[in-house]
Computed example of a mutant assay.
Amino acid sequence: MKVIIDTNGLMVPAQWGVDIFNELEALGYDEFVTPSAVVEEIEKLKGKVKGRDRTALAIAREMLKKCEIIEAQGFADDVVIEVAKSLNAPVFTNDAGLRARLKKEGIRSIYLRAKHKLAIE
Rank of each mutant, 00 (worst) to 15 (best):
A58H: 04
L64M: 07
R113P: 13
T55Y: 13
N88F: 00
I42Y: 02
I69W: 07
I20W: 12
L118Y: 10
T34C: 03
I5D: 01
L102C: 05
C67E: 00
E25M: 06
A72W: 01
D78L: 00
V91A: 14
G17Q: 14
I4S: 07
G106F: 12
D30V: 10
E43Y: 14
E23S: 08
V79K: 04
I110S: 08
L27I: 09
E23R: 11
G9R: 05
E40P: 07
G17S: 07
K2Y: 01
E25W: 03
F32A: 08
G106I: 02
A72Y: 08
A114W: 15
H116L: 13
F75T: 00
E43S: 13
D30E: 11
G106T: 14
T93C: 03
G97H: 09
A72G: 07
E68N: 08
A72V: 01
R52N: 09
A84W: 02
C67W: 00
A114F: 10
K103A: 11
K103N: 06
L87C: 04
W16Q: 11
P13H: 14
I5H: 01
N94M: 12
G28A: 02
G9Q: 08
G51Q: 14
G28R: 01
R99N: 11
A114I: 04
V18F: 08
V39T: 06
K66R: 10
A14V: 05
Y111M: 06
G17V: 15
K103T: 10
